[in-house]
Every structure is written in structure tokens, then in C-alpha cells.
């Protein structure tokens, strides 16, 4: 386990796969990917806030899916799970994606989940930054 601090926020196997793509002597590649992701995540959260204000559910679902893809690639399990929920709520579904929900319920849940995702992101961000500072 490379990052014991990350706990269940991080899927070790997936993240290690990214680390293996690094050249032998540095962590340049993975560092660029991880820091790119920080930017992407912050940008996406900002867009989410805007859409939440406009009550644009469909766009929220798309954003959830978008960030789910990259967080999954890095193995950021908790962020990925929350993004998937955002994707579902935005599509008027419950968190498992099976039952229909109305707009109000979804907006309320989206708000909570987006805040949760932000928190999870900032937690893992700290761990990862520390990892790359030491590296």
C-alpha cells in the first residue's frame, strides 16, 4: 500500500497502476495526472454549483458522469461513488439508478451529495499532495 493514509478513499490497485506508468526515476507522469485532476475537479465543482443554482439537472448528471470517469481512472473511490450518485440524481433516479424521483427531492439530494463529494475530494487531495511533496 503506497498511501496508507488514504484508507478506503483510494483503490490501491488502480492508483498503483498509474504509478507504474511513471518512469523509473521520477513520478512526473502520475504527478501531472493527479494535479490535472485537482484542477479538473475544482472546475467541475464550480460548474456544479452554477447548475445547482439554475436547477439544471441534466447538466449536473453529465458533470457527475464526467468527473466519475477521471476519479475512477485514478482509483479515488469515494469521490467516484459520490459522482455516480450525482449522475443518478441529476437523471431523476435514486442513488442506485433504479427508481424514479421528482425534481425537488433530487435537488435536495444533489446539494448534499455535491458537498459530500467536495469534502471527500479535499480529504484525498491533502493525502495526495503530501505524497507528491515527499516524493
Amino acid at each position: 500500500m503506497v498511501l496508507p493514509d488514504a484508507g478506503d478513499s483510494l483503490d490501491a490497485a488502480t492508483f498503483e497502476q498509474i504509478l507504474e506508468m511513471d518512469d523509473d526515476d521520477d513520478r512526473d507522469f502520475s504527478r501531472s495526472i493527479v494535479f490535472d485532476f485537482f484542477q479538473q475537479a475544482e472546475g467541475t465543482f464550480n460548474k456544479m454549483d452554477e447548475c445547482l443554482a439554475k436547477k439544471d439537472l441534466a447538466q449536473l448528471s453529465a458533470l457527475g458522469h464526467f468527473l466519475k470517469g477521471s476519479s475512477a481512472t485514478l482509483g479515488l473511490t469515494k469521490v467516484k461513488d459520490s459522482c455516480e450518485k450525482i449522475q443518478h440524481f441529476g437523471a431523476n433516479k435514486d442513488e442506485t439508478g433504479t427508481n424514479d424521483l421528482d425534481d425537488d427531492v433530487c435537488l435536495k439530494r444533489l446539494k448534499t451529495t455535491i458537498n459530500q463529494a467536495k469534502q471527500e475530494f479535499s480529504d484525498i487531495e491533502k493525502v495526495l499532495k503530501k505524497f507528491y511533496e515527499e516524493a
Binding site: 498509474i18 506508468m21 507522469f29 495526472i33 490535472d36 479538473q40 470517469g69 477521471s70 481512472t73
Partner: peptide, 16 residues
């Protein structure tokens, strides 16, 4: 692939 992070990772992987 629309997500450039995923694109980057995939490219690296395929080149590998």
C-alpha cells in the same frame, strides 16, 4: 475519450 485525464492515462498505457 472526452475526459483528457482518462485520455492521457490511456495513451500512456497504450504506448506502454
Amino acid at each position: 475519450e472526452d475526459n483528457h485525464i482518462n485520455q492521457k492515462v490511456m495513451l500512456r498505457m497504450l504506448k506502454g
